[in-house]
């Protein structure tokens, strides 16, 4: 097994195989504290699968994922979340029947067992935190609106807010600006730069303009393996990357 490291996230020899097809193949990847990492790559490169593996949605065939030197591959989803890993899905995944306020309140990290939920009371502290996060994700005025009535971009923000309220140390976002207007993309880039202070963030994204705006370091995945890794400039000028991804 791998040794202890300073990295927030250390992925080593990670492999997952679906009926013999290796979606992720002996992957090694390290994410530093307070780093904002962007993962890019063509469709089917295994980007979303990597996130699924980290957050426990998919079980690894082999290899290790260490979060602050804690092995994640053996934990179940809710334990991984409680350890401090938050994950946003590709399509906005919010509770359409509940209000924006209730969406955030449910995500607030307290009283997450059955008894706690039965005896849960709204406190001033929770209320303040919900309002703070709502303001941050540009939904401060829409707290009582049913979440299903929000625009697509607002739903994406709400889901980011639902993660923020948990204050995770590692935040993973799968295509956060998909389906957003140009203005919303700018706002989201701002938001990401703000919220990445004090935590590590992994973002999967196709929009290269957006990636340039936010990335500290870029990882290019191709067929389950790392094709290139480095700064945006380095990656953009890498011939192999241009051939399989950027050139198209």
């Amino acid at each position: 097994m791998s040794s202890a490291t300073d990295f927030t996230l250390a992925i080593e020899d990670l492999t997952v195989s679906f009926d013999g097809f290796k979606a992720v193949d002996s992957l090694n990847m390290y994410v530093d504290r307070n780093e904002l990492r962007v993962v890019i790559g063509p469709n089917g490169a295994g980007k979303t699968t990597v996130l699924d593996l980290i957050c426990g949605k998919t079980k690894a065939t082999a290899g290790s994922i260490k979060f602050k030197n804690k092995e994640l591959t053996e934990l179940s989803e809710h334990q991984i979340v409680r350890a401090g890993v938050g994950r946003k899905f590709q399509t906005p995944s919010i509770y359409e029947n509940l209000s924006v306020y209730e969406n955030l309140e449910i995500s607030y990290p307290a009283k997450r067992n059955v008894w706690g939920c039965l005896t849960f009371r709204r406190t001033a502290e929770i209320e303040a935190r919900v309002r703070e996060v709502a303001a941050e994700i540009f939904l401060g005025d829409l707290l009582s609106m049913e979440a299903g009535l929000l625009s697509h971009g607002q739903k994406q923000w709400l889901e980011i807010g639902m993660l923020l309220i948990q204050d995770p140390e590692l935040l993973m976002l799968d295509e956060p600006v998909a389906g957003m207007s140009v203005k919303e993309r700018e706002q989201t880039a701002d938001l990401l730069n703000r919220i990445s202070q004090g935590r590590s963030v992994i973002v999967i994204e196709h929009d290269m303009e957006f990636v340039k705006n936010i990335a500290h370091k870029v990882t290019v995945l191709h067929q389950g393996k790392i094709l290139a890794e480095g700064s945006m400039d380095q990656v953009q000028n890498d011939e192999r990357v241009i051939e399989v991804y950027l050139g198209h």
Binding site: R87, F89, I94, S107
Partner: peptide
């Protein structure tokens, strides 16, 4: 509505 989201908010569904 979204069972996975609840799970990934730290609840044991």
């Amino acid at each position: 509505d979204k069972e996975d989201r609840v799970r990934f908010s730290g609840y044991d569904v």
